[in-house]
Design a protein around this nucleic acid. Sequence first.
DNA 1: GTGTTTTTGTACTATATTGCACATAAATAT
DNA 2: ATATTTATGTGCAATATAGTACAAAAACAC
Lengths: 220, 220
Amino acid sequence: MVQKEPKDEKAPRGRPRAYDPDAALANATGAFWRAGFSATSLDELSAATGMNRPSLYGAFGDKRALYLQALKRYTEEGRAAMHEALAPGPDLRESLLRVYDAALALYLPKGEAPRGCFLINTGSAESLNDDDVRAQLAGALREFDREFEQRFRRAQAEGELDAEADPVLLSKVASALLHTLALRSRAGDGRAAMRATAVAGVELICGPAGGRKSRPTRGG
Amino acid sequence: MVQKEPKDEKAPRGRPRAYDPDAALANATGAFWRAGFSATSLDELSAATGMNRPSLYGAFGDKRALYLQALKRYTEEGRAAMHEALAPGPDLRESLLRVYDAALALYLPKGEAPRGCFLINTGSAESLNDDDVRAQLAGALREFDREFEQRFRRAQAEGELDAEADPVLLSKVASALLHTLALRSRAGDGRAAMRATAVAGVELICGPAGGRKSRPTRGG
DNA sequence: GTGTTTTTGTACTATATTGCACATAAATAT
DNA sequence: ATATTTATGTGCAATATAGTACAAAAACAC
């Protein structure tokens, strides 16, 4: 009953899986990403993952459960990437631009068709019909807001940002830029135009000439 | 036979329609709005419009054609409302807030469940699979951007906005606020929080204390 | 009235889709 | 080797869905 050795090297008992669960989930994500939840059939998911239907059901449950797990995985990866982009080191402008550049790289994969954001562009279509999707969407947006917010608080603490600025509101505006990039990617907008928008947004958020009011120390 | 009188009062020849085409299209829009294109069945559309399937086909064509016409109608109404909100009269801040308040009223109908934006939240889910949807989405976003842009140009001409500001880039940021409101409505965010975000965005766009400060010109 | 035109309503067909049953395969345990 | 366990693969059943055929209905023209 109680395993004393929770090693990963445990010998599984029956026939080994022919797939890597995380890779399969990533491929299922790719299928859902293109067409959304409703327009993606189990046949497409089966083809994308290389798993047949019964294996899909055994591994992830039904189509909806698979979609929810794909959303969860995607959100966690996105949040990790965002946390990394906002990590200490670069100044505020640079930090924010790293987030937007990472988003653009995700939304406009090199050599492939634009795809926008799996969470924003497919989750919001489904959210009115599915409370769990809506909850995941809401939770993810909140987390992304918080990542920005914490970065703004640090910027204030370091004198990079006006002390009177409201980090919560600024985080919402910073997120709005992310949301517009996701949407515009799906509308076919070009990378350069979107990056210019992000830069303009960053300038508005960070305020004129490196800080909002007083002149803090340059560089950081 | 040349009709000399192209009046609307012309007597149609066969059995009269039992529906009002524009009302039916509005009701179909409502059905698509909730669930998106793929997840809305013809039975639901039939129930929403009160028309049976053959009448739907006769009036609008197949499901996709109906969706495209719904999108077109919605976009035109939205653009008209936006144009109205940005019409001369109020100052820039007030003009922008009128747009965001109108959007919130549309996205969060009183007494009903939140629904977000039909175009943004359902169109972007479908846009990768349907070139016509993508084209309509892109065209609509462009039109909305232009409405903001023209308002910013007028604000500059009237000295309401720094002459060095870039109206194109500001319009993209102003649209980003619209996009985030659409998304957040569908995530369940509250009206007050969203309005506060819009106000904060307007303040950033209009600049400190009435709008005479250095603005970003070009990014890159 | 009879005929023409257009819309409506019922019923239908063809297909797609989801989810699962059941037998087979591939591993371990003893 | 034999039993046990877990995964796979074929195939299927129940349902849902899109789109249409066809007859009845409701208007006009004469």
